[in-house]
Design a protein around this nucleic acid. Structure first.
Lengths: 134, 134
DNA sequence: CGGCATCCCAAGCGATACTG
DNA sequence: CAGTATCGCTTGGGATGCCG
């Protein structure tokens, strides 16, 4: 009857717990980008603003605060003449990088399959550039 | 050390392209769950509704439509007496599963590090249950 | 059963202006 | 430089009801 492999005992909500848990950290338009930008070392507020497209200061600080509360990043304040603040991934934050890499690779395959790159070489270089440390 | 590894040439927007690309597919509260639930075979509309927490019909159908447009899933209509519709992952959709697994593992480590499980055994079984096929 | 229509709310985000 | 405050828009989402 067509539904051969489906067990009729419902797939109990499979991973929604864990999936949702991590999705909340990852969610939003900017959080993943922040984590991604921090993966190769600490960055300052305005550096993040510049790196991440033009994210508004309000939203960026909101995300940073959230990520800090979740212990994904730490905030270092250096009391210099012009105030300087650095954000850095915690160990917990580092754990998320493989997940983001997975997403990047997934996005890459998506673009290859549907959108199409002009050439495979270009696709590969794009992926390599995306993944390379800095 | 603090800023040792930061190149002062700005980290050009590293992967936002690819990251954002895939994040848009993954984004929203339910899309990842849908893909996750479909990873072990086709499911029908109402099965998905039941499996995924209580997602409203409106939102579920909206997500399904989006995912179909992006060629992540396919819709099979079977013209039986009570109408029956099945959704299934396409090959493109399958490509996303590793990314989701990465997220699940990330969420798992997050819970271990911060929230804490009572015991490691329980943590492991939780992860295993989340990842097991069906 | 599957799914669209309507209403309505809350969160996310951007822009601008302002402070320490 | 590193934010906070305010405003207003746009989306995602829940609830309910109706239709094929």
């Amino acid at each position: 009857m067509a539904l051969k492999m489906r067990k009729n005992k419902s797939l109990q909500p499979p991973a929604p717990c864990l999936l949702a848990e991590c999705m909340q950290v990852i969610a939003g338009a900017w959080a993943p980008n922040v984590i991604w930008c921090l993966r190769s070392g600490p960055r300052r507020f305005s550096e993040l603003r510049a790196d991440i497209p033009p994210v508004s200061a309000k939203v960026l600080s909101a995300r940073l605060k959230e990520l800090e509360e979740r212990d994904v990043i730490v905030r270092h304040v250096r009391p210099t003449s012009p105030p300087s603040v650095e954000y850095e991934l915690t160990e917990i934050g580092q754990e998320l990088i493989p997940a983001l890499e997975g997403i990047v690779r997934g996005g890459h395959k998506l673009k290859i399959r549907s959108g199409y790159y002009p050439s495979k070489a270009e696709a590969d270089s794009n992926l390599a550039q995306a993944l390379e440390p800095a």
